[in-house]
Design a binder for these strands. Structure first.
Lengths: 147, 147
DNA sequence: CACAGACTTGGATCCATTCCATTTCTTGAA
DNA sequence: TTCAAGAAATGGAATGGATCCAAGTCTGTG
């Protein structure tokens, strides 16, 4: 089974080996419907759906879902962590210096300097900050992950 | 006066309208010699030079120097803020997921997808995170900066 | 059904950062 | 050189996001 079309939230959870609980389903839905929500906002959204959830449970679930690859965590310098449901595609973010609003942008692959977003969504961009994540030479030659 | 060649640290401070104090000179030198240092490391470096400085003074001075454009603050998600002396040029960073080491990279302007750094310095990059800073449509049409 | 895993409650704790009131110091002018 | 204005530095307290802990309850899942 598992119609290839569009798996339900529950099926997605199961698909990555996580238990399906009301809280997690509500959390996943909340994050996907929301727009780069912070932890508090997510907790509020989940409470709207299932009545109650503790902040700790929210943190726990966010970790689990992020680790499972169902959510992505972004942390614009200067503001608390935010989460989004868009994963898998390589997209970046526009952050407003004034109000902190976050918007998605596709990666400008293939053309232009990386300073230019493929679509600036109406933002007036004054800086592009790029962080390349990976392993430094020393760490990539080390067998295990030492932290 | 002010030989165009290479202004002293003190002259640079004066040049941006800041007072010249031993602490600031030492701090600026420390950051420039160091490699993406954190606040604690900077404080330690300054203490090596001038004997003593409070953490608060370090924060205050870092703010002042950053605002003045003499330093740049970078904040890789998951680690405390770091400061560097390279300003003015548009360069980005390589961050090691394992040890947190930060290295500079020039912007890959003009060629390649932004996923590819101009020189990866030996890092094995698995992700490029781009944050475009600017003002969202709403904020850019607003006369004053409301936060 | 039984159990591992998830959730709750209620702490405590950690860390980076900021705020406060007070004192000290740099600086430019007298 | 002396002085006053105002910026900078100080110690101490406080804030806020995030994490962790332990004990007990609940609940998916095999």
């Amino acid at each position: 089974m598992t119609a290839p079309g569009k798996p339900s939230t529950a099926e997605e959870l199961r698909g990555v080996g996580l238990r399906v609980t009301a809280a997690r389903v509500a959390l996943l839905d909340t994050v996907r419907e929301g727009d780069h929500l912070g932890v508090e906002a997510i907790a509020a959204g989940v409470r709207d759906r299932v009545g109650h959830i503790s902040l700790q449970a929210v943190y726990e679930a966010l970790h689990a879902l992020t680790a499972a690859g169902l959510l992505r965590r972004i942390e614009p310098p200067g503001s608390p962590a935010r989460f989004e449901g868009r994963v898998g595609d390589n997209h970046h973010h526009l952050v407003c210096r004034s109000c902190g609003t976050v918007a998605d942008v596709d990666c400008a692959v293939g053309h232009a300097p990386c300073l230019t977003a493929s679509d600036n969504r109406g933002f007036s961009v004054d800086e592009a900050e790029v962080i390349y994540w990976g392993l430094c030479p020393a760490c990539s030659s080390t067998p295990d992950d030492r932290l």
